[in-house]
Amino acid sequence: MTTQMKSTNGPTLDDVEFARGYIDDVVCNDDEVIVQGWMLHPEQEFTDLRLYLDGELVGTGSTASRPDLAKVFPWIPHAAQSGVYVRLKRPTPARSVGRVDLVGCQASKPIARMSVRYRTDLGTAVPTPSSDLMFRVAHTRNDRSFKIWGLKCYGDFLEYFDHHGGLNQAHRLLDWGCGCGRLTAHFIAAPNGPEVYGCDVDSEAVAWCEAHLQPGRFKTIDPFPPTPYQEGFFHRAIGYSVFTHLTREVQIEWLKEVRRILAPGGIFVATVHGESAASFDFPGRVGAVLVDGIHDGIQDETLGGIVPKGYYRGTFQTQEYTRRVWGQFFDILEYKVRGIGNHQDVVVMQRPA
């Protein structure tokens, strides 16, 4: 969905760069809209906020005090004033599904945004995994937070598919690294979408998806290729927070495999920890950490006992590295900083015809 900013002369919300931040809750009912969380631009402070509901400007607000974020991000002077609590009266009856956009401005100029889909029936629209499964993929045991963030990231991925041919003509979509279906559930719940498949190294999560996310089709895969899918089987694929945990060598193996199972002309949308993410983990040291273009030396034990020791990493890489190396396997159509979840960079790729 490309949304016009009605209060400006031309630009769209999609033209505004992404903020860094997190949406804790979104409540939409017949009377009001409530958005809670935090958002900031690393280099520019917001003087005011604008809230758009389904493309319509419904009000303005200001940032709130968040002293906890000043402690987490002490190198960002305005982090202490990056809280979001916006509560506005609705001018029209609520839709059951839609999109909220929060735009941070400086002297009325749009600087950065956060976007999130909403569903008034979110609590019952998709099933709830066990707390252990939720924690394994999202580091939360709160089912509402898990579902809000899954729906938000699902909406983020939809933006890129909308930019590059949409999903209507795609017969099969793969969620590579689906976990317990945080995003997969929303692709399955969407009307008139493609057949949805998911695969993951976590057999417990895959078993849960098979039992609760019908008519999706799921498989447990090994940490290394190949997968059991036929060549050219999928028309669309996503990989959310998967490459962010792989060494450079394993990334290349999986790029080759996804290219194999994607149809010629098919679209693959995946995320990486780019320079922006690195700046929050290595403040003031990004250039040194990413001197080789990629840093994959941090071991992550989240999937201990599921994948071989040392396999799962915290990986960061420059946009230049991603374009240069990944461009050997795919045509790079688009790269957006903080483009998924307002943290990870997004890479939109196409298998050459």
Rank of each mutant, 00 (worst) to 15 (best):
L158K: 08
K6W: 07
S276F: 07
P91D: 00
R259N: 15
D156S: 11
S62Q: 14
P42S: 12
D175I: 08
L158F: 06
F282S: 00
L167E: 03
T60D: 07
H273A: 15
V258E: 09
N192A: 14
G314H: 13
G104L: 02
F46W: 00
K71P: 01
G304M: 08
K309N: 12
D48L: 12
D296K: 03
K152G: 10
V250H: 07
L57C: 11
G104K: 02
P91R: 04
F243H: 05
G61Q: 04
W326I: 14
R260M: 01
T12V: 08
Y22N: 11
G198Q: 03
G297Y: 04
T140V: 13
L57A: 03
G232S: 13
D300Y: 07
V348G: 05
I261F: 08
D121I: 03
G61P: 03
E334D: 14
T302F: 10
R50F: 11
A185M: 10
L183W: 00
G83M: 03
T247Q: 05
D175S: 12
T47A: 06
D121P: 01
G266V: 11
D14F: 02
F146S: 01
H41E: 11
F316T: 03
L213W: 04
G284Y: 03
G179A: 14
D175G: 10
V116F: 00
G21C: 08
M134A: 00
P194M: 06
E301L: 12
I238E: 01
V27E: 09
S131P: 15
R20S: 07
P110G: 03
V242S: 04
F234Y: 00
S108A: 09
E334L: 08
A64P: 03
W208N: 02
V289C: 06
S241A: 15
L255S: 10
F330W: 04
Y321D: 01
